[in-house]
Design a binder for these strands. Sequence first.
RNA 1: GCGCCCGUAGCUCAGGUGGAUAGAGCAACGGCCUUCUAAGCCGUAGGCCACUGGUUCGAGUCCAGUCGGGCGCGCCA
Length: 568
Amino acid sequence: MHTYESLAAPILAAFPELTAADLVFAPAPKVEIADVALRTFEPAKKLGMAPPQLATKIRDGVTFGPDVTAVSLAGPYVNFKLDRGAFGRGIVARILSEHKQYGSNRSGAGKRALVEHTSINPNASPHVGRARNAMIGDSLVRLLRFEGYDVETHYYVNDIGRQIALLVLACDDPATLTFDEMLDLYASANARAEQDAAFAEAGFELLAKIEQGDAEVKKKFFAVTELCLQGQLAVLGRLGIRYDRFDRESDFVKDPRLDKILDALREKGALFTDEEQRLSVDMCQIGHPQYPANEGRYVALLRSNGSSMYVYRDVAYTIEKMSKGADLNLIVLGEDHLMYMQQIALILAAAGMGAPEPIYYSYILLKEGKMSTRQGKVVLLSDFLDEATARAAERVEEQCQELPEVERKAIAEHVAVAAIRFAILRVGANKNVIFDWDASLSFTGDTGPYVQYSCARISSILRKLNAPLPESPRADFPVESNAEWALLSKLAAFPDTIANAAAAHSVAPVAQFVLETARLFTTFYHECPVRDAPSEAQRIARGHICLATRITLENALGLLGITALERM
RNA sequence: GCGCCCGUAGCUCAGGUGGAUAGAGCAACGGCCUUCUAAGCCGUAGGCCACUGGUUCGAGUCCAGUCGGGCGCGCCA
């Protein structure tokens, strides 16, 4: 049952052409103007009349129930004054009963989704730039699961490139190394390959061997990449990020399903052998726009010695993912992969196959400019988390002295995670983010820790209530201040926010919602005492508002991968 | 050179498929803790929404161009 059902029903009865989806109820720009407002742009368009005309007809021609106390117009908007107690009670009742499900529209019920994200090269420790992929992907997975999708998360392990071959050459026994030592080893091996042609050539020989199925070599590659992978997962795990499947690139060097692709390309005259005897695709034969500079026109699939190029393996892997038949197939990619993914999609389309829907994100920049591993200008995720946890721990030491040490440590870590996840996720994916270390560590203002702080305050209030709250709101539910109503109507808008986020495949609106809700709660907190409310009915109603806010924030933060703390 | 993305307060960002007086935070200035956690709240100040032209009753939002930033453009993955 929709929150504003009793407003929508009489309108729908008067205009049978409309459906509930056409009617968008939202808070007015200021609470003083109206308790809730209806936009008439969408329904007016459907009815073929001017928005203000429809608004007038709704005001004059529709009879509303007793819980609507006034209907007025502001051009294309219909403004309603409501019996706030009745609506507030309905909002709270719904939140308490739906609880962990509140906000979900179940748009994915009965559907399966496959999401690939992160998939970073093994020879690097995750920095905040790469982690943007992981955070966006992980939050998307959480959002889809919340909407009812059965989601499988995949991580593509790049275990067969030239860089891995060099690492294998340089590393005698991976079992004796840590992840960090392995990274140092990679740096030196890479440098050597640039000077030492024989060393580089040995790397390619190793690659050829693993493609021929040399068991011994494959074992070595596996050992090296597995150690790296575990090192990466340890860091990502601190952010609460997990995966269901790890798909290894080396399993896709020879895939019989690719024959069908090659046949289709050949048939379209797109396949040719280039001047260096590589099997290549002329993308312009299969729908790639012909740019003046032949941009991205030619793609090599196989080297002259028959060994596979990355495109070849990626096409095979994509076929594998698509063959799982998920209703929704997503891949999170940096903007640098845009054209590459288009090429993969075109190659597959030539054989009548589909490709995943890409979610692109832009790079994170530093104030000093781009991140650069070579110049050491990177912010490693582990370094940030260590520093942020230490900062947070100082505050927790002061404010939670009654808690045991382990618990305080856990709180500090949760705060650190909230800081970085919120800072990244609240920005639209297609915008460059300027990472500012100081701002990210400040924990004040529009931050994850601020929202967590609101949650801790709510929990504190609920702990200190003299008597337990009834399971559902009482009939007598006074809502006397604008602060209370503004908060309630925000809570009521949560399912719409989730619907928008799910449709847009972006969790950024959820981050925005969480901030606005926390701010409205804080205003309420300062203006409306709960424990010492003027009346028993108000004490209970406000207690229920707190509880409903807590549930909503907890659900929303959960989608961002942030823990709603009890204390901090 | 060509393609994609971005340009909103000094700084970092919000601004449903065009619509109510463009909103937050940080930094600055002035207030508020014997009162449910001051990681907070209230107030002041700060905007030719990059620029130019167009479409529209109406443009931060759509179109074209200019300028500025990011990314990409066959033997790395």
